[in-house]
Design a protein around this nucleic acid. Structure first.
Lengths: 132, 132
DNA sequence: CTACAACTTAGAGTGTGCTCTAAGTCAAGT
DNA sequence: ACTTGACTTAGAGCACACTCTAAGTTGTAG
């Protein structure tokens, strides 16, 4: 697949990922993204793999993982296969935390549902009074 | 229940709710909590109702609701029964958002599960090689 | 060759949600 | 009356995750 060798400018990657060019450079600066290859030694050229990595980061971010934590993961990833076990440990911790978070959200959803029901009944009662 | 008339100092409320005394004052200052009654005109005395309200705020916060939004809700609450419909609308929006968030988290959980499985298989393969 | 849009860096600024400090007041025990 | 510890306010400071600015360089179309 020749298409996989296609390279992208920073603004194309911004378009594709939904991050701003500022944020892409920021992520690289703090080490969330590996130093991106340059065309003519200054302008960044992102590979499809780079974009895939950014999209994975976005998913980690969406789980609530802190940037420091993502950075640790990124460093392990770059260190190669020797760090696989450590990465699996991190993923298991994340899995545990996300499950707990979902559980908590479901509980709060229950409370919200109850409140909506209760208040709706009160409103119905108010309307009854008014029309009586 | 006479016990319901019991009053609490700010540090007791901090203990009960898990918020710091700083945060409790901060929440009052920005209008998330109504101006708490004072004993001898300076020291705050919280009622059980006040504590209940703080605990509800913590649940809203845990759903990811922004403070500005919580403040709006708090103001509607204080305005009385006339705002019930507006509050139900806010709760329905929150319900929708939380459901969407849970859905997203579940998707990411799937990805995490896949990665754990895949990496674990690779690790198992590595160990096989070493022992062979 | 020139115009001009897109890129570059270092570093400053912003919004959110706390968190702490300084300086002082109050309440309870001895 | 005095000490001690909990309380008070106004306002400064902090961590996080961006977001923007200034000043300059590069690449492409006419």
């Amino acid at each position: 697949m020749l298409n996989d060798q296609e390279l992208f400018t920073i603004s194309q990657v911004a378009e594709i990922t939904g991050l701003s060019v500022h944020t892409l450079r920021y992520y690289e600066r703090i080490g969330l993204i590996r130093p991106i290859d340059r065309a003519g030694n200054t302008h960044r050229r992102y590979s499809s793999d780079d974009i895939g990595w950014v999209e994975f980061l976005l998913k980690l971010r969406a789980t609530g993982m802190a940037i420091q934590n993502m950075k640790t993961y990124a460093e392990l990833q770059r260190a190669g296969e020797e760090t696989l076990e450590e990465r699996v440990e991190m993923l298991k911790t994340l899995q545990f935390d996300v499950k707990a978070h979902i559980h908590e959200l479901n509980e709060h959803l229950e409370l919200i549902r109850h409140k909506i029901e209760f208040y709706s009944a009160v409103i119905a009662g108010q309307k009854q009074e008014t029309s009586a």
